[in-house]
Design a protein around this nucleic acid. Structure first.
Length: 255
DNA sequence: AATGGCAGCAACCGCATGACC
DNA sequence: GGGTCATGCGGTTGCTGCCAT
């Protein structure tokens, strides 16, 4: 698969920028997603006014611009969590990232290579793993995984059991990501069922079109791909501030 | 002050996977 | 079943800033 494959055929070819993102580009991407949500990474850059590949936009959003990204140094607890889960999952960074809300797989991967790798080499003995959070999880994992492929069905069962959430996905990493991020970002006071109900609540047509009416610069994505991706649950603000950003996501996600 | 080495991090690249036709 | 496309993931690269000399 090549990089060109990522570009939809009808998207006009233009020289794509590479390298570091400027603050202006960040703003454009953020503004666009605020308005229209995430509908199709490949086709978003053009209407967003960005000379970037969709892949680049996605990466920038996922690893840097997302409002729920936690920045700053890793805490000791986070370090321990990474070390512990790396013993269980190996280099499955996205799966490990589900254990650290607000941290991206890229960030964890970088942190591992730059700092924890050496520490892990020196401290391979299990006794060096501190017995803090989720120690029981690790024990269960290691028992279940002994002599098995970490990507195998045992792990799937393990993850399913761990969160006690019904799932039809065959990819435990993906599913735990979806489930855990949902639960964690909504807070512990809501059950998964409640959240699902919230998610499934219908929204009025009027609500859906309010943006079109109020925004003269509105440039609607093509309907066929409008809702291709729903990364965030709508209607609830991630940062708890109730800002309009997630209200817009909600509108876009329920057309 | 200059510069060379190094660490940390953002971003890119290539591959895998799943959905759709 | 095979082709195409979009997305996700992990490995790698390269830029930048810091620090020692």
């Amino acid at each position: 698969m090549t990089e060109e494959m990522e570009t939809a055929p009808h998207v006009e070819k233009m020289p794509l920028r590479k390298g570091a993102w400027s603050s202006e580009e960040d703003q454009k991407l953020t503004d666009y997603i605020k308005r229209f949500g995430i509908w199709n990474w490949s086709q978003m850059p053009k209407p967003a006014g960005l000379a970037r590949s969709g892949k680049s936009c996605r990466l920038r959003w996922m690893n840097y611009l997302r409002p729920d990204i936690k920045r700053g140094n890793f805490s000791n607890e986070e370090e321990e969590t990474i070390l512990k889960w790396h013993q269980v999952l190996g280099n499955r960074w996205s799966a490990i990232a589900t254990k650290l809300p607000g941290r991206t797989d890229n960030e964890i991967k970088n942190y591992w290579h730059s700092r924890l790798k050496k520490r892990s080499k020196n401290n391979l003995a299990p006794a060096t793993v501190s017995h803090t959070a989720k120690e029981s999880d690790i024990e269960v994992n290691q028992n279940d995984l002994s002599g098995t492929d970490p990507k195998g069905s045992n792990l799937e069962q393990l993850f399913t059991d761990e969160y006690d959430l019904s799932s039809s996905s065959s990819d435990p990493a993906v599913e735990t990501d979806r489930n855990q991020s949902t639960v964690e970002n909504f807070g512990s006071s809501k059950t998964f069922e409640e959240l699902q109900n919230l998610w499934e609540q219908p929204f009025s047509l009027e609500e859906c079109f309010c943006m079109v009416e109020t925004d003269p610069g509105f440039m609607a994505p093509t309907g066929a791909v409008w809702l291709q991706e729903q990364i965030y649950p709508p209607s609830i603000s991630y940062d708890g501030t109730g800002n309009e950003f997630w209200d817009v996501i909600k509108v876009n996600s329920h057309v």
